[in-house]
Computed example of a mutant assay.
Amino acid sequence: MTALGFLYPGHSAEDDYPRIEQLLGSDIRLDLVHTGAGEDTYRPGAPRGTGAVEELARSGEGLRLSGAEAVVWASTSGGFGYGWEGAHQQVRALARAVGMPASSTSFGFVHAVGEIGVRRVAVGATYPDDVTALFADFLGAAGIEVVAAHSARLASARRAAEWGEPELLALARAADTPAAEAVLLPDTALHTASHVGALEEQLGKPVLTANQVSVWEGLRLTDRRVNAPGLGALFTREPVVQV
């Protein structure tokens, strides 16, 4: 049994995690602990308030006691909102505090893009334009080219959590461009676990979504690979060998 821990802000799309656990169909347990949601608004200052290491460490203590082998901070904006260096400092401090490997959804996107072997991506974000730009900058710092970005300009995670497959598809299509090799939907407040396959079928290319990527990142930290077709190309492709 591999136990993975997730620190999830508030209550938006947390039910994606038991759904993903079911789709994995293996000896993997996904444990979720809720952190304070902070201010439920999408603006540049707000994401930083949800990612204070002291708060994450307090929440992560329960995951350590439950037997989790790795922990992922499952708030994309709560990672990239600190910038490239700040997000690194955040996960290093979290790992020290909880005594296990740690990462965040933001870095999960970076690693997942490398896993599927692409360099040019489109971003479909629920955020306002300036927050979406912060995510694009974060990806750029990792050497990933953002060839297109679309902002839905929602006001809050609560609003994002109300979206279903039609809205997700509209968001992905609005962001997509022929130059993009994959489409990224970065908000962990979106319910995407049941829709990745349909999104990829409609777009004809890999789609990376925040909760899907968070779980894959936890597996990466524990050196586990799971073939789960229901979770899209990220969980079915062979890893890219770097030469």
Rank of each mutant, 00 (worst) to 15 (best):
A93L: 08
E39S: 13
D40A: 10
G78V: 05
E69Q: 15
L94G: 05
E69W: 07
E54A: 10
A46C: 10
G49D: 12
L30F: 12
R29M: 01
G67D: 02
R58V: 14
H34Q: 08
G86R: 11
L56G: 07
A74C: 12
R43I: 02
A37V: 09
F80Q: 11
A37L: 09
A70H: 07
V53K: 13
R43Q: 10
G49I: 09
R58P: 03
G83W: 11
Y42V: 08
G79E: 09
Q90H: 05
E61W: 07
A87C: 09
E69A: 15
V71T: 03
G60A: 01
A95D: 01
V72S: 00
W73H: 14
T50S: 12
E54G: 07
T41R: 15
R58G: 04
D31C: 08
V71Y: 03
A95I: 01
E69P: 06
A46T: 06
G38I: 00
V91G: 04
G38P: 01
F80D: 08
L32Q: 03
R58N: 10
P44T: 10
T41V: 15
V33S: 02
A46Y: 01
W84M: 10
Q89W: 08
G78N: 07
H88T: 05
A70L: 11
G83N: 13
E69K: 13
P47F: 08
G86K: 12
E55K: 10
W73C: 11
L63A: 06
S59I: 01
A70G: 08
V33M: 04
E85Q: 15
L30W: 12
L65N: 05
P44E: 09
D40R: 04
I28N: 03
L94F: 12
S59P: 03
W84C: 04
G62Y: 09
G81Q: 06
W84P: 02
H88C: 06
S59Y: 04
L56H: 07
I28R: 03
G79Q: 08
L63Y: 03
R96M: 10
V71H: 00
Y42K: 05
T35A: 06
I28E: 05
G86T: 12
G49A: 15
R48T: 12
E61A: 14
R48I: 13
P44N: 09
P44C: 09
A52I: 07
R58L: 14
A52M: 09
G83A: 13
G78K: 05
S75Q: 03
E85V: 13
G62R: 11
G60V: 02
L56Y: 09
Y82K: 06
S77H: 06
